[in-house]
Each structure stands twice: as structure tokens, then as C-alpha cells.
Amino acid sequence: MSYIKASSLAKQYGNNGIVVQAVREMSFEISRGEFAVIMGQSGSGKSTLLSLMGALNTPTSGTYSVDGIDVYSLRSDQRADFRREFLGFVFQSFHLIPYLTVLENVMLPLTTLKTKVQMKRQMASNALERVGLENKSNRLPSEISGGEQERVAIARAIVNEPPILLADEPTGNLDTRTSEGIMDRFQSLNSDGMTIVMVTHNRECANYARRVLQLSDGLLVN
């Protein structure tokens, strides 16, 4: 039974006659609890596909569903709720909010939940504990290392325990040893049942996944 399903998903950019087909008629299915990586050359459509899977972009054509929900038939606010409930994002450059502490950054996805602040704080502390940063919760992002910032980004992505984690080149800015640590955490999350879709250039990182979606010029080649 497929959990994530894309059917003839396409996205084109441009106007004034110059059209770029970033994603062409792509169909695939990902099962619940699967760890898949998307690989391909620069400009092959990896990031566009990830943004479509993250309900951040509107496809030009095709359908995309998660757990039976036709994501792009949802209204803007419903899609925001969908992102909050179903998805966790890890970006290549961490993208932590610089004026919030580590703990506050992790609490961000819980901001709009109608839950007591104390409970939110506990959830964020638990997430930080899972990535081994419970002792740095009061630091600002600028006061911790790149590897630690990536772990904070992972904690932020998993704090509300979403079923799907989307990661865009999460190890792109990290050294080999730190990258291995991050991938071990992803594997651990996956073994806990989280579905992970990760964009990467790195073959070694791809080895952690059970499935590789290879892209070329906006097409799925395997």
C-alpha cells in the first residue's frame, strides 16, 4: 500500500516563451516507513520535486497524495496544516531563526498548536535530547557549530513527530564525520517508523537509504 503517491507530476517554470520543465510527468510511490533518496545532477529537478512533495509548490499538472489526501486540492491554510501535521523539513543550510534560541527554534512548529507552553517546552526538550543537544538549548544558533545547527534543524523537523521527514542536502555543508552522525540519526528515525525522503549528491549518504530515485533533466530514470 503506497503512502506517498505521485501521478504524472509535472512542474514548469518561466514565462515570455522561455519555459523550463523542472519536473516532467513523474510518477512514483513510496511506502510508509521507507527511506528514499533522490539523486541527480544539479538542475535535474531534485529540489523542485522535494518542494512539490513538501506541499510548498503547486504542480503544473498531475496529482500528489499522502495517506490518501490529495495535497494540491487543499486550500492554502489546509496545506499549511498538512505541512505541520505530516511533514518535517531539514534544509541544506539549516535555516534556523537567528534571533531565537536553540530551544525556541525547535519549538517553532508547535507555535500555532493550542497546547500549553510547558508542554511545548517539554516536547522541544525531548527532541533536543534525541539529537544529543539538550545541554545547548539556551544558545543562539550563532553560538553552536555547523553540525550542531544541523542537529537542531533535525530536532525542529521531528519535534511534532511528523510521519514524513523531507531533507534537502542535509549533509551538504558538513564534514564526513559529522555527516555520518547525521545519517545515523536519520536511520534511527527511520527505524522508528518515520518515512524519510532525502535529496543528496553524496553516494555514501545514499547508501543509508533502501531506495534511490534517480533524476535526469526532470525525469525519473529508475
Partner: peptide, 11 residues
């Protein structure tokens, strides 16, 4: 980032 992690437009 706010939008990606589930903030609504009204937020």
C-alpha cells in the same frame, strides 16, 4: 521557513 513548518498566512 515559517510557512514550510506549518504557519498559516494569518499567522
Amino acid at each position: 521557513i515559517f510557512r514550510a513548518i506549518g504557519f498559516r498566512r494569518s499567522d
